[in-house]
Computed example of a mutant assay.
Amino acid sequence: MDFRLKDEQSMIVDSARQLGERFGLDYWREHDARKAFPSEYWRAVCEAGLCGVALPTEYGGSGLGMLEMALIVESLAATGGGSTVGQLFMINPIFGGVSISRFGSEKMRRELLPLIISGEINCCMALTEPDAGTNTLEIKTFAKQEADGGWRLNGRKIWITGVEVASKMLVIARTKKREEAASRTDGLSMFMIDVKREGLSHTSIDKLGTCTLDSSSVFFDDVRIEPEELIGTLHGGWKELLDVLNTERIVTTAGLVGTGELAIRLAVNYANDRKLFGDRPISAYQGLQFPLAQCHVEIEAARLLNHKAASHFDAGLNYGSEANAAKLIAAQTVARATERAMQTMGGMGYAKEYHVERLWRDCRLFRFAPVSEEMILNYVANHDLGMPRSY
């Protein structure tokens, strides 16, 4: 097993790191303060060809793989963006790109993939509901089919990322009543619709972190869906949705890995410069060294497991267990890494000037989103250990 990067992968990593360094930490601090979408940054990412790295060449992508995307996200996150970078890739090349390239019609691929890859449009996904949470099979948003083959959509979604800047929305809805479905997974379908459409409204949620990307409640009031806006199999969207969700885990983990790398580097640089109780830097004290070293080791473990998940996806192998386990380790470790980085800096770790507080606020989200650590442990217990379901 060869863990060395290929020449092309090394070039991609270097390009991503150089692009990220052009913007840097102050750019993200400013946009976080203004709660502003990083439009200049995302435009630069797309112009550099990084958004479409894992999407087909015939639509403007690079035709590489999810491993290359993970490497890009890690590098961009580590140069300043933090875990929010994972979300930017999540809403566009995953929610938009993966769903369309794998399950969309040829017409949809031709029309939308080049626009996503170039950054001309942004996407979002409307999945989570107030009464269902992570129990996707209990969603109630319903698309009723009409005589001409279209649908009318009614329902509510919550905590939907990026709605305010999105042109297209991947919507997951029931297309069969629960009592008519052959199983719990029967009767779910996916649609790609316009955000600006009669009957669709949304309101922003004020929140702790990830402020450069909005989170919203979304309301569907008799929203018309055209027949050609179906993605994948009518009533059979559950398994297809899992491919979208598990690749979402990969970019989320990559963003967290880069965040942990950045937080530790900021802490070490500060500790190497800070002197107390004589001429020795505070980084010489094992009380500071050991927690940061422990976090570094665990972040590297999450990175490797995520690379395995991405490589398995690219090879057409099962990758769900690896993707979920890597996300679990990364989310827990990076929460501690950012906390320890703040502790290393003392009072200055609490100051926005030193950036770690933003990384700490942003990464906290990912202990319960896009899937909670408890649900990941349920998955591991059921699927990997063969234990009975507890819920």
Score class of each variant (00 low, 15 high):
Lys6Phe: 01
Glu8Asp: 13
Ser10Cys: 03
Ile12Phe: 06
Ser15Ile: 03
Phe23Ser: 14
Gly24Trp: 08
Glu30Cys: 02
His31Asn: 15
Lys35Tyr: 01
Phe37Asn: 02
Trp42Tyr: 08
Ala44His: 12
Glu47Tyr: 03
Gly49Ala: 08
Gly52Ser: 12
Val53Ser: 07
Ala54Ser: 15
Ala54Thr: 07
Leu55Phe: 09
Glu58Thr: 10
Glu58Ser: 14
Gly63Phe: 07
Leu71Gly: 05
Ile72Leu: 06
Ile72Gln: 00
Ser75Cys: 01
Gly81Pro: 04
Thr84Tyr: 01
Gly86Arg: 07
Phe89Trp: 05
Asn92Ala: 01
Ser99Ala: 13
Ser99Cys: 10
Ser101Gly: 01
Phe103Tyr: 13
Phe103Val: 01
Glu106Gly: 11
Met108Ser: 15
Arg109His: 08
Arg109Thr: 06
Arg110Val: 09
Ile116Leu: 15
Ile117Tyr: 08
Ala126Gln: 02
Glu129Ser: 10
Pro130Ala: 04
Ala132Tyr: 02
Asn135Met: 05
Ile139Tyr: 03
Phe142Ala: 07
Gln145Thr: 09
Asp148Ile: 11
Trp151Ala: 08
Arg156Lys: 15
Thr161Asp: 05
Glu164Tyr: 05
Ala166Phe: 05
Lys168Pro: 00
Leu170Phe: 08
Ile172Pro: 02
Ile172Tyr: 06
Arg174Pro: 13
Thr175Ile: 13
Lys176Pro: 12
Ser183Ala: 11
Asp186Pro: 11
Ser189Lys: 12
Phe191Asp: 11
Ile193Gln: 01
Val195Ala: 08
Leu200Asp: 09
Ser201Gln: 00
Ser201Ile: 00
Thr210Arg: 07
Ser217Trp: 04
Phe220Gln: 06
Glu229His: 08
Ile231Val: 15
Gly232Ser: 04
Gly232Glu: 04
Gly232Val: 02
Leu241Asp: 04
Val244Gly: 02
Leu245Ser: 10
Asn246Lys: 01
Val251Asp: 06
Ile264His: 04
Leu266Phe: 07
Asn269Phe: 00
Asp279Arg: 07
Pro281Met: 10
Gln286Ala: 12
Gly287Ser: 01
Gln289Leu: 02
Gln294Asp: 07
Ile299Tyr: 03
Ala301Asp: 09
Ala301His: 03
Leu304Phe: 04
Asn306His: 01
Asn306Phe: 03
His307Glu: 10
Lys308Ala: 07
Lys308Cys: 09
His312Ile: 04
Ala315Ser: 00
Gly320Lys: 11
Gly320Arg: 13
Ala325Asp: 05
Val334Phe: 00
Arg336Tyr: 08
Arg340Val: 01
Gln343Asn: 10
Gln343Cys: 03
Thr344Asp: 00
Met345Tyr: 05
Gly347Asp: 14
Asp362Met: 09
Ile376Ala: 02
Asn378Phe: 05
Asn378Ala: 10
Asn382Ile: 10
Leu385Trp: 13
